[in-house]
Every structure is written in structure tokens, then in C-alpha cells.
């Protein structure tokens, strides 16, 4: 499907096409809730149309959400990654040492929120937050941390080896000092 074909699904969810996936999810759950509810605001407008129209709207919302989810999980993901590579070559600051803060700053420059990273990397939001704030005490064992950092770096299109090496060095030092 071409970009243009998705337009109508964004329209059904009352969004502009340049929306993030988390906004799509939010719009979807609000609309779903609204049209499955018996909110008092239907009374003045529904007239004789009744439940039938609402059922049709709900179906459209479901279809739009299903199709847009696929879009974000496949095509859009590749697309954002290609954009990201070019962006990262041009505008993204390079850090001498990649620690939690450097990851956060890079992510923010790229305009990506943590929910998005969590969604695509399948790392829980809680762990991602702890990686950024370097709350090593709240992270799972070392081997997992390495995998998470690796995936996170990959999502940000950073040099995976450098980021994991830097980050894990800091992780080990910190743990050493504490014991």
C-alpha cells in the first residue's frame, strides 16, 4: 500500500498522517471507548440513526487501527530507520562515551519517545528508563542489560559495539565501586 492509501485510515482516527504510533494508539482507544459507551453526548445528535451507525463507526475504527498498526510495525519502521540513519550522520551529536545520558540525549534529538523504543525493541519501559538514568540496581542481570543496550542502540541507529562497550564499562565500574 502507498502512503496515500493510509491517509483515509488516519482520517478515520481523526489524525494527521505525521502522527506517532503512540498517538495512534491513544486516539484509537479514546474513539473505541466513546463509540462503545452510552455517553450522554450522543443524545442530541444520534436522532433516529440509532446503534447501526455506531456499529459501523466502530468497525471502521477497528479496521483503521489494525491497518495502521501493521503500517507502523513494518513499513513505517523501516522508513523511520532510513531517515534516522541519514539524520544521525548529519545532526545527531556524537558522544565520546555513551552512557545513559548520552542515549537519552540522542533519543531526544531524534524526537523519539521512550514508549516508541519500548514498543519496537520489546524492552519494558521501566528497564529503558533505568538504562537511561543508570539505575543499575533496578536492572536485571548483566547479560540482559547488555542485550537491552544493544537493542536500544540499534533502534537509535548508533554504533552498536561502541555503545554497548561504553555502557557496560560504566555498569561494571559502578558495580565494582558499590561492592
Amino acid at each position: 500500500m502507498h502512503e496515500q492509501d493510509y491517509k483515509k485510515y488516519f482520517e478515520i482516527l481523526e489524525l494527521k498522517p505525521d502522527t506517532t504510533f503512540s498517538e495512534v494508539k491513544e486516539a484509537y482507544s479514546h474513539l473505541k471507548k466513546l463509540y462503545s459507551s452510552n455517553s450522554f453526548i450522543f443524545a442530541p445528535i444520534e436522532g433516529t440513526l440509532g446503534k447501526e451507525k455506531r456499529k459501523k463507526i466502530l468497525e471502521q475504527i477497528e479496521t483503521a487501527y489494525a491497518i495502521l498498526s501493521d503500517y507502523y510495525l513494518s513499513e513505517k519502521k523501516e522508513k523511520t530507520q532510513t531517515i534516522k540513519t541519514t539524520v544521525s550522520n548529519e545532526h545527531v551529536p556524537e558522544f565520546d562515551i555513551y552512557d545513559g545520558n548520552a542515549l537519552r540525549l540522542t533519543r531526544e534529538v531524534l524526537g523519539i519517545n521512550l514508549e516508541e523504543v519500548a514498543f519496537f525493541s520489546k524492552i519494558s519501559l521501566k528497564y529503558l528508563k533505568n538504562i537511561e538514568t543508570e539505575r543499575f540496581d533496578l536492572l536485571p542481570p548483566k547479560a540482559y542489560v547488555r542485550i537491552f543496550v544493544r537493542k536500544y542502540a540499534e533502534y537509535l541507529s548508533l554504533d552498536i559495539k561502541k555503545v554497548t562497550d561504553d555502557y557496560m564499562k560504566k555498569y561494571e565500574n559502578k558495580n565494582k565501586n558499590e561492592f
Binding site: 479514546h30 474513539l31 466513546l34 453526548i41 445528535i45 440513526l49
Partner: peptide, 15 residues
């Protein structure tokens, strides 16, 4: 605040 989103949605979908 949500009611604004709902009213907007009804204006779009019903009108």
C-alpha cells in the same frame, strides 16, 4: 477535557 475530543469526533462522524 475528553469531552472536547468526543464533541469533535461527533461533528466529524455525524455531521
Amino acid at each position: 477535557i475528553n469531552q472536547g475530543f468526543s464533541i469533535k469526533s461527533l461533528c466529524i462522524k455525524y455531521l
